[in-house]
């Protein structure tokens, strides 16, 4: 859905003091009863995202990135604070928020037996289209994404992970969102697919004037793609600025990288976190 002129002057995203806590059931070591172990996923997070920019949220696993995205996608309600998308409150005006957003998540949210076309037609219907001309639009998108047209009618489960992720992005294009929430869209992709998806993100901003909120733990990706970056750790925003500003302020030496800045801020490397997760 296109943004109204009045919304152009509004911040794409505004967060004030957002907190979210989960009570996780845990088993006692030598008993059958369960106790509640609480986890603070977001701790008083405030942020501002300008319209038309790519804003990156950097953080390790469990830093609160996905919780933040879910709150903005109206899939979760915060315990405290306020969050708005183009001026619409995510809790009290979810319908207005939903008309402006779409989300590409790390796992492909598709009906696996259905084909890309059937999945995209379903998405189009939910977002007010799906009539004549939809098939031609979808085919055009697939061509732009470098996907062979014969993939359109195969079951999703027969496509590679890279192809599925491209279809997920194409599906989000189909609904013309003003704000695209991307939750680790390149995780698990081979280098070539990763580059192609990154190119697509650039295209979205260039051709569609959409705002992109990109959650990633790929620091190179953030450095290359993002206009503005926030570093999130244990549910708190540690720093924000352009990649160059963060490198300058926190990398500590000439020729430093965003990874150096991230390490300095959080005291950890994202690769270590990934390795720990794999183990």
């Amino acid at each position: 859905m296109a943004i109204k002129a009045s919304e152009l002057n509004t911040a794409a995203v505004e967060l004030h003091g957002i907190s979210k806590r989960f009570g996780q059931p845990a088993r006692r070591p030598f008993g059958r009863r369960t106790v509640k172990k609480e986890k603070l996923a977001l701790d008083q997070v405030s942020m501002h995202v300008d319209t038309g920019r790519i804003t990156g949220i950097l953080g390790a696993n469990g830093s609160g990135k996905s919780t933040l995205i879910r709150i903005l996608a109206t899939l979760m309600t915060p315990d405290a604070g306020t969050a708005s998308v183009f001026g619409y409150d995510v809790v009290t005006q979810p319908d207005d928020v939903r008309r402006h957003i779409n989300r590409v998540s790390v796992e492909a949210s598709f009906f696996k037996e259905m084909s890309p076309w059937e999945n995209m037609l379903y998405a189009a219907r939910l977002y007010g289209s799906g009539g004549k001309g939809t098939r031609a639009r979808v085919e055009g998108m697939l061509e732009r994404l470098g996907l062979p047209l014969d993939t359109l009618d195969k079951p999703m489960k027969q496509l590679s992970r890279g192809q599925q992720q491209k279809i997920a992005i194409a599906r989000s294009f189909l609904t013309s969102p003003s704000l695209l929430l991307m939750d680790e869209p390149t995780t698990g992709l081979d280098p070539r697919s990763k580059r192609e998806v990154q190119e697509l993100v650039r295209t979205i901003r260039r051709d569609r004037a959409a705002t992109v909120l990109l959650c990633t733990h790929d620091l190179e990706e953030a450095e290359v793609l993002c206009d503005h970056v926030l570093v999130l750790d244990q549910g708190r925003v540690l720093a924000e600025g352009t990649p160059a500003e963060l490198i300058h302020a926190h990398a500590g030496e000439v020729g430093g990288s965003l990874e150096d800045a991230f390490m300095k801020l959080t005291g950890k490397r994202l690769e270590e976190d990934e390795e720990a997760k794999d183990e």
Partner: peptide, 21 residues
């Protein structure tokens, strides 16, 4: 019209799922 379109979308989706399964 928007809601009717989505209503049709759910029927269409289920039809496709029944066909695929």
């Amino acid at each position: 019209r928007w809601e009717l379109n989505a209503f049709v979308g759910f029927i269409e989706r289920q039809k496709n799922l029944y066909r695929r399964y």
